[in-house]
Amino acid sequence: MDEESSGTVKKFAFINRKAPYGTIYALESLEVVLISAAFDQDVSLVFADDGVYQLKKGQGTKAVGMKNFSPTYRALEGYDIEKLYVEKESMEARGLTEEDLIVPVEVLTSQEMATLMDEQDVVLSF
């Protein structure tokens, strides 16, 4: 990190709206999230639409021959990334509840999510 970026703290939101494995977006988004931890920014992760599926418990990828990256969501706390938000409408529309998710999250309504996103400085979507 150079002089100009040290000391600046911005609100970063990573918006996850895609399911895992079908495309690489979820995995590569997680890689950016992990890197962002090194920059001491105010990071939030948002899961909406099919992005909620990224957090589903019980993922097993042996038979598809891909890496199961879902345990990484549990490791985020160790990187001081603790703000995970799930949109209530998206979760319910997919027949899921908080008990189905691999990590503790804060469930927000669409309106609350609108406010959260509006407060961000940088919004990254993958």
Partner: peptide
């Protein structure tokens, strides 16, 4: 270069616009 360059761009730029 590394992914840090993307985060740095988010910090240093006034706006970061995603195309995908």
């Amino acid at each position: 270069s590394g992914l840090g360059q993307l985060v740095e761009s988010g910090i240093q730029a006034d706006r970061l616009v995603t195309f995908g």
